[in-house]
Design a protein around this nucleic acid. Structure first.
Lengths: 213, 213
DNA sequence: GGATTCAGTAAACAACTGTTTCCTCGAACG
DNA sequence: CGTTCGAGGAAACAGTTGTTTACTGAATCC
């Protein structure tokens, strides 16, 4: 399933420094946004010459786009699995919120980058994130379509619901990150509030199906 | 109701340059984020010396915080008025979405700044925006409390609902802004999708009140 | 095993940044 | 009316930035 190319020690080293730059950039981006990140900052943090940067990226914007894919990488499949695994509404909500909290704790920098640059100042990165989230929305919609309660729901309606849910997840990620910095409510409060919101949305879904689909 | 201080020609000029700096900054921020905005950029755009900047702000962060209040200024009261004016759910949704679209067209730069810096790289600005939005949430909750359907709703539950709605408004603002730049869906599609979302949330509210409040 | 490719280096470029110190000159005050 | 005050200007400061050009030396290819 995974396309692996046999790899020489030559380009192994290249990939290693490339990844080092991405990691260093992610670290530096915890306290600033992409549009103020300097290419010299990145290379300095890695320990290479500024010129080496150009062997891997055209400019910082290019690096940002590369960063998007890594950041959204696993969350897709994790959420999908959680949704498929549980079909009771309350279970789904609890497990999804717990999953998000765990994921934020495990990869704070990646997710901070996503949340920050989703509406950030670099157009190409904004578009890359939007494209990834769109894929995510369609995946979630596909899972929702399997539920019994999706009886008379059209595809656009399901995508609307999925979009609503994905936005709630992103907002939850942002709130968890704030909680970890002691800005705003605590982690427990964020989890509780998110569950409440998701429950309300679920009720809306049920009610919507029951009257005019 | 408005506290107006009698004003000399002296500080009238000072306020004028201060406002010119805020406006110039807002313009420059359409294509970058606050953390990359230079104080020299701002003064150059206004046509004053870099040193003049310090007569008005300690640094760019300070200017950013000042910008927050201007940006959120009117939307509060407009939304409040719209909610109070209509109590039919469908009317509320239609008028609120229309109001948001109009407001985005009228003040794109202010709103872009808000959406961008809400999760942006400058902590003080993030906190200022969060504080303003929190006030907004409490205002909306207060209006919702007047509805009949808010029978057995506790205050935290009402604030949860209000928070959900305010987040939807912010997301709608962001989507309208993207539409104006021909990123993503068209303006009409954004309006339609937002109305769908708000309807679903309203159904959830009704259903939630009907069973366990 | 010799030729070639290419990741990373070294040094220099002009342009820009935030901040300081001192100065100017018109309005405001007593 | 003379004095004080304060918004804005001039010039210089040491650092920083992105990008170019020419190079080295080790892994790869034939």
């Amino acid at each position: 399933m995974s396309r692996t190319t046999v790899i020489g020690a030559r380009e192994a080293q290249k990939l290693k420094t490339r990844q080092a730059m991405l990691d260093a950039a992610l670290g530096l981006l915890e306290e600033q946004s992409l549009s103020s990140l300097g290419l010299r900052e990145v290379t300095r943090a890695v320990g290479v010459t500024p010129t080496a940067f150009y062997r891997h990226f055209r400019d910082i914007e290019d690096l940002g786009v590369a960063l998007v894919d890594q950041a959204l990488g696993n969350l897709h499949t994790l959420v999908r699995a959680t949704l498929v695994e549980h079909d009771d509404a309350e279970d789904r909500i609890d497990h999804t919120v717990a999953l998000i909290e765990r994921h934020v704790r495990a990869h704070p920098a990646h997710l901070r980058f996503l949340v920050r640059e989703r509406h950030g100042g670099v157009r190409a990165v904004r578009l890359a994130i939007a494209a990834q989230l769109d894929r995510f929305v369609r995946e979630v919609a596909a899972v929702l379509a399997l539920d019994e309660e999706s009886g008379g729901w059209s595809e656009p309606e399901l995508e609307m619901l999925a979009g609503l849910l994905v936005d709630q997840m992103v907002l939850a990620v942002s709130a968890f990150l704030s909680a970890m910095l002691d800005e705003g409510p605590t982690t427990a409060e964020v989890a509780a509030a998110t569950r409440l919101r998701l429950r309300l949305i679920h009720l809306g879904r049920e009610a919507s199906g029951r009257r005019a689909p």
